[in-house]
Design a protein around this nucleic acid. Structure first.
Lengths: 205, 205, 205, 205
DNA sequence: GATGAATGAGAGTTCATTCAT
DNA sequence: TATGAATGAACTCTCATTCAT
C-alpha cells in the first residue's frame, strides 16, 4: 500500500527517514532514487512498493513537518497570549521542530522554492503564507500593544527572522554543544534586545 | 578561448549573467545547459566555445562574487575601525553586494553546500572560513571592547547573522520598495538594538 | 494448482475472463499483470496461484477459442456438404464464435502475429494454417463445382474474408442492434452476391 | 530541430522509416526506443535529437499517412462522380496507399485503438470519423441512385470493407506476386459482384 | 489462497559533453 | 563562433515474477 503520509510505522518510516537525510544533505534533485534505495539496502525498483514516486517521498517528508509545525503555530496563536509571549513561543516552536524534522526543514529551506513549482507541492505556497500570517500578525499586534518598536516593518522583520529560523537546521547537530532550546533562547535574546550593549538609543520611538 | 574567470566584456559576460539567473531561480542541478543555451539564443553545444563546462560557469559566477566581497571584507577589517563600525560595514557591504551579485549570492546560499563537495569548488570552503573569521573576529573584538554584550556566543551569533545576510538575496528586488541600503539599515537596527521596546533589561552584562 | 488450460469453473475462469477483456481492450503487452489483479480484486503476486505466467493466461484464452472454433471447422468440413453450404457454415461458425470468445478473437486478431513469435505460442501458426486450409479448400472446391466464380484467387479471397471475419469482434456488442447471426447473414449476402445491384456482369466466367 | 512532420528529408526520414517498420512488425508498445536506435545504428539517447519522444515518432508516421489518404479521399469525394466510381476510387486509393505507407497502415490497424486513447493521438478519432463519413456517404448515395442494393446497411457494410482494406497491409509484399492495383481490382470485383457464380438471386431489390 | 516485500531487467528519457563541418 | 548529430552514462519508473509468512 503506497503511503503518502508521515513516517510512522515500519519500513516506510525508515525509508522516509533515509530519504529525508539524503535530500537534506545532497539536495532533492541531486539525490537519486538509487541513492535512497542503496541506503535502505534494497533495489531502486523496490522503493516503488512503498512510494509512488520520488516526489511522493518528498511530499510525505514535508507534509509531516508542515502539518506538525503549522498545527503548533495555530495552537500558539489561539492561546491568546501577550504578543511578546506569542512571539517567543513561535520562535521556540520553530527551532524545537528541528528535533523531529531537521531534514525536512533543510529540504524546505533549500528546495522549497523549486518544489513549490510542481503541481504536487502546491501546498508549499499555502504553508508559506500561513507562516507569514502568524509572524506578521504577532509583530503587528506587538507594535500596537507597545511591546515592539514602532519603527519595525513587520513583513521585512518577518523575512529576517524566517531566514534564521529555518537555516539553523542546516548546521544544528542533535546532541551537539547547544540544544535546540538553548539556540532558541540565544536567538530570542539577540532578536528582542539586540547585540549592542548599553542603554537603548531609540527608546523614545 | 575558454575562460573560467569572471567575464566582464562581451558575449561571455552576457551568457554568464543568464546562467546566473537560471541557476538562482531553478537551482544549479535543475538548470540544464540547454536552458542556458536557449536563453542565450544558441545551441547547447555552442556554449562550450565560451565555457569549458557547466561547472566552469558556476565557478566564474561564484568567483566573481566571492573575490569582490572578500576583497571588501579585507578592506573593512584592515581599516581598523571601532568594532561596531566594522560590524556595520560588513553587514552593509554584504547586503550591497546584492546589487551586482544577487544571483551569485542566491546560488552560494542554495547550492554552496552541495557544490563545495566538488573538486573544482574547494575554494568555497575557504571562502566560508574567511567570512566566519571576519565576523567572529569583529564580534569578539566588540565584546572585548565593551560594544557588544558579553553573553554572546560569537560563532552562534555569526551563524544567525549569516543566515539573514545571504537569504535576503532570495527575495530582494532591485528597484523594489526597499533599497539594499535601506534593508541593511533596518537589519542593523534590529540586530544591534533588538525589536523589543523600552529600556534594555540586561544592561549590566 | 497452475493451470494452462481453459478454465471453466470457479475463480480461474473468472480471472481469465477479466484478463481476456483487458488484453482485448488494451492489448496484450500494454495490459499489466497488476491491471488484471486489480480487476480481480487481488494482489498481482496472488495471480500466480492461478496461473504460471502472463503468457499462460493468454495461452488459456486463445486455446479455449481455437480448440472450439477449429473443432467446429473440422465438423463442418467433415459434413461433406455442397461447397456453398460449407462456405456459409464456416463463416457463420466464425462469427457466432464471438458470442463465447469475443475477447479471444480480438486478441488473436491484434496480438496474434506478435505472440506467435514466442515459443509458447507456436500453435498459433498451426491454427493459422488450419484456418487457411479450410477456407482455401472450400473455395477451390466451390470453383471446381461451379458454385464460385472461376476468376477467384482462393488464397487472396481467403485473406479478404479472414480480415472481416475476425475484425468484427472489435466492434461487436452482444445485445446490440445486430446479433452475430444477423451480421453473418449480411456478410454472406454481400460476399456471395456483391453489393452492386442489377444483373451480374460476369455471369459467363 | 525536432520535427513532428512527415518523413521527407534526410536522417529524420530514414529513422522514421525504420521506426515504422519496427512498430508495424512488433507492435508499438513492444518496440523499444533502443530497438529503433539499434536499427538506425545510433544510441537510444541520440534519437531524441530528432524526435521528442517515442509517441512523436508514431505521430509523425501516422500523420503522414492520414494526411495523404484523407486528402485523397476529399479529392475523390469532391470529384462528384457516379457513386460506383467514387466507391471504386476510394477502395483503390486506400489500397494504393500501401505503396507509400504500408507500415503506417499496419500500425493504424493494429495499434490505432490503443493509441487513440492517448492525448497526442486524439486526431485518430477524427480520422476514423472522416473515413466513415466518406464510405457511408458513398454507400448511401449509391443506394439512392440505384447502383447498390437497397438491402445494404451502410454502416455495417463500411465496417466489413474497412476491415479488409487496412488488413491487406499486414501481408502485402511490394514486388510480390500481386501489385496493390491488382489486389484492389480483385477486391472490388468480389465486393461489387460477389464470389458466387450465376445469375443474381436478389435482383429485384 | 492470499499478502506484501523484494527482485532484476529493462523501459523511455535527460543531459553534459564532444566534434566534424 | 556556431551548428547539429552523436555519445554514454545516469535517471525515474515499470513490470513480470518470486517467496516467506
Amino acid at each position: 500500500m503506497r503511503n503518502g503520509r508521515a513516517a510512522e510505522g515500519g519500513r516506510q518510516g525508515e525509508v522516509l527517514a533515509l530519504a529525508a537525510g539524503l535530500f537534506a544533505s545532497n539536495g532533492y534533485s541531486a539525490t537519486t532514487v538509487r541513492d535512497i534505495a542503496d541506503a535502505a539496502g534494497i533495489l531502486s525498483g523496490s522503493l516503488y512498493h512503498h512510494f509512488a514516486s520520488k516526489e511522493a517521498m518528498a511530499n510525505a517528508i514535508l507534509t509531516a513537518f508542515l502539518d506538525e509545525i503549522l498545527g503548533r503555530y495555530d495552537e500558539i496563536v489561539a492561546a491568546d497570549m501577550p504578543a511578546r509571549e506569542t512571539f517567543e513561543a513561535l520562535a521556540t516552536a520553530s527551532l524545537l521542530a528541528m528535533e523531529r524534522h531537521q531534514a525536512a526543514i533543510v529540504i524546505y529551506q533549500n528546495d522549497g522554492r523549486h518544489l513549490a513549482l510542481l503541481e504536487n507541492f502546491a501546498y508549499l505556497r499555502d504553508a508559506g503564507e500561513r507562516f507569514e500570517q502568524a509572524w506578521v500578525g504577532v509583530l503587528q499586534r506587538g507594535i500596537e500593544e507597545g511591546e515592539f518598536r514602532r519603527s519595525l516593518d513587520p513583513r521585512l522583520t518577518y523575512r529576517f527572522i524566517r531566514a534564521t529560523l529555518w537555516t539553523v537546521a542546516r548546521w544544528y547537530r542533535p546532541g551537539g554543544p547547544q540544544s535546540a532550546q538553548e539556540i532558541a533562547d540565544q536567538y530570542l535574546s539577540i532578536l528582542l534586545d539586540g547585540i549592542a550593549r548599553g542603554k537603548k538609543k531609540k527608546t523614545k520611538e
